[in-house]
Design a binder for these strands. Structure first.
Lengths: 144, 144
DNA sequence: CCAAGAAATTAGAATATATCTAATATGAGA
DNA sequence: TCTCATATTAGATATATTCTAATTTCTTGG
């Protein structure tokens, strides 16, 4: 599919295109979901059992550093990771920890002064609630 | 100070006011910062060394469940916790993991339909960047 | 195409964070 | 004061992540 694109983005970030690293990247792009390191490790090894846990973590660290992948912390759960694609906000399920994307839209900046002398890099919205799998019987949509 | 207030909010949540639980709550309110479980455990025991790690975690879990305390996940770091006070957004330092409050302001809801059948409970803004301690020399404020 | 060397991989140990267990203690309502 | 549901404890266990140091492998330059 876009195997060439993956190779190019790795090369562009000066990361060698090893089978393990490629597999992590390909998995994340194919999935288009937010996966834990354990899920990625398992999935990559299911296809070709040649990657170690350390390598999975190393690659994720490098891919994050290179800006190809993004870390998403989830309260009370293992961290998740996603391939950076089009910009979006996040929805996190209170019950199962699943992270889902919410279509991007611009949010207003804080009142000037409120940021103080902090250096702002990015800003995103986090929605919390129940995903469709965890939501109780239909018709009970509640909005805070 | 507001020791009576703490007792009342515990009682209101049907949580017994034990010395350990009170100490956790008092510390969080006094600090008005986002602390890790380890920090809380250490601080509480510095004053009166009678609390165990398990108790600290149990109490934090119960206080979160009761809605008196809020969990804040930080990528690549131990979770942090804060006493729920006035509503606010969060700023997380890329470098040291410190969580800081940003004055609350309303953010627009996502386009209807974008949430799908998900149940929305709350929504907050997360700003990322460098805190004043970690920011490099002054004058270099950069905004994405 | 090959050699060289930087970069990446590995298994397993080590560390950090969080939860569980089951025996014991205690706050607070009656 | 008595009672007992609730809370606490030390330490073991579970889970998540990083480290170590020996080995292997991409890739570049010759």
């Amino acid at each position: 599919m876009d195997s060439e694109a993956i190779k190019q983005s790795l090369k562009g970030s000066r990361l060698r295109c090893t089978p393990q690293r490629y597999a992590v990247m390909a998995f994340l792009m194919r999935q288009n979901r937010h996966s834990t390191a354990a899920e990625i490790f398992a999935a990559v090894n299911r296809v070709d059992p040649r990657s170690s846990r350390a390598t999975t973590y190393n690659n994720l660290r490098d891919l994050v550093k290179a800006g190809l992948v993004r870390d998403v912390a989830v309260e009370g759960r293992a961290a998740r990771v996603e391939a950076k694609g089009v910009r979006h906000h996040h929805f996190i399920c209170d019950r199962c920890g699943m992270v889902e994307d919410i279509e991007w839209y611009n949010v207003p900046r804080p009142a000037s002064g409120s940021l103080g002398r902090r250096v702002l890099r990015e800003c995103e919205l986090i929605f919390r609630g129940l995903c469709t799998k965890c939501a109780p019987a239909r018709g009970s949509r509640r909005v805070s």
